[in-house]
Computed example of a mutant assay.
Amino acid sequence: MALRKISQMSQADHVLVTQAVADAERHTSGEIVTIVTDLSDHYEDMAMAWASAVAFVALVTYATFPDFYIGLIDGLTGGWGHEYTMGEYVALLLTAVALKWIGTWLILKWMPLRLALTPQATKLARVRSRAISLFKVGTEAKTIGRTGVLLYLSMKEHRAEIVADEAIASKVSPETWGDAMVALLDEVKSGNPGAGVAAAVAQMGVVLAEHFPKGTENPNEISDRLIEI
């Protein structure tokens, strides 16, 4: 399913980030790619999982206390009692459970609630997976020296990832990007995603310049512009 295209970043943010990338790459043979998205996954499976859990609890409850719920039905129908056959009772039970499932699923169409009920580990894994997928398409092996690195920010999950190409990953451990991630998230939490991405890029440039200094021949192999998807 295609994710909704948004504009989390202003034109000024685009200019700021693009300039930050250009400045960082003046001192390194590395190539920095920046991508910002509104949402990395729609978590439809989480909505279905919660709906199924609620339906199961309802099924157990109805089956455990049938007289109570049959009494409620009789009350709603004017107090006329009815001796339900096993087939009728099963039909009522399945209908009630189905309504619970559908109702819960519809409620969870509201994305803020769906995200709130999605485990942090799941969101982290989905953002990482999306970042790696985008890295493979637009950054991996796109430079002669395998020196591309992707900075990926997913706004609604409040998550960011840095994914590096083969040459960089062999010399730079994931922990080394810690300062860049802190710089990014501090600004994002303050409502300045553009400034956050630019600050992270600057920190990434410092790391890249140390391990991959600028060479005599170093064409700009990947566009510096910020990408929104």
Rank of each mutant, 00 (worst) to 15 (best):
K189Y: 10
A160K: 04
R146G: 00
L72M: 15
D41T: 09
G205N: 02
W101G: 01
L39Q: 10
V188W: 05
E140C: 10
A63F: 02
T216M: 13
A131W: 00
K171M: 11
P174R: 01
L108I: 07
E161T: 09
H158E: 14
R128S: 14
R130G: 06
V17P: 01
S10M: 03
A53E: 04
S154K: 08
T104V: 11
G215Y: 04
I162M: 04
R225E: 15
P112Y: 01
I144N: 13
E187Q: 14
Y43T: 00
Q120M: 10
T37M: 09
V60R: 03
L39K: 08
V137F: 08
T147G: 02
G178V: 07
E228H: 05
T77I: 10
G191W: 03
K214W: 01
V127Q: 09
F68A: 12
S154A: 13
V163E: 00
A63G: 11
V21F: 05
A167H: 04
G79W: 09
H27G: 10
I132D: 07
A24S: 09
E25M: 06
G30A: 09
M181T: 10
S170C: 04
S40K: 06
A55N: 03
D74E: 15
E44V: 13
E210R: 15
T34W: 04
F56T: 15
I229V: 14
V15T: 12
S173L: 12
G194M: 07
W105L: 08
V197N: 03
Y89V: 00
L226Y: 00
G103D: 00
L92W: 09
L115S: 09
M48T: 10
S40A: 14
Y152W: 02
D179V: 11
L72W: 05
A55V: 09
E157G: 05
V163F: 01
W80F: 12
Q11D: 15
L113F: 03
M111P: 03
E140D: 12
D23K: 10
E175C: 01
F56M: 14
L113T: 07
S52W: 12
S170G: 05
E161F: 04
N192M: 14
E217Q: 12
S173Q: 12
H27T: 07
G191R: 02
A200W: 01
L72S: 06
A164K: 02
Y62W: 02
R114P: 05
L94F: 13
G138E: 10
R225I: 10
I107Q: 03
T61N: 08
P174T: 01
W105G: 04
F212G: 01
A91E: 09
G145R: 15
A160E: 06
H42Y: 11
L59G: 12
I102W: 07
V17Q: 01
Y152L: 03
L150K: 00
S154F: 04
Q11P: 00
R128I: 01
S170M: 12
Q203Y: 02
I70D: 09
R225Q: 15
Y69E: 05
M204D: 01
G103K: 03
I32L: 03
Y62V: 12
S40G: 14
K142M: 14
I144C: 07
I229D: 11
L208D: 00
V33N: 06
K123T: 08
L184A: 06
A96E: 11
G148N: 01
T85E: 06
E140A: 12
L115W: 02
L99E: 07
G81I: 06
A169N: 12
R128A: 15
I132S: 07
S7T: 13
L113R: 08
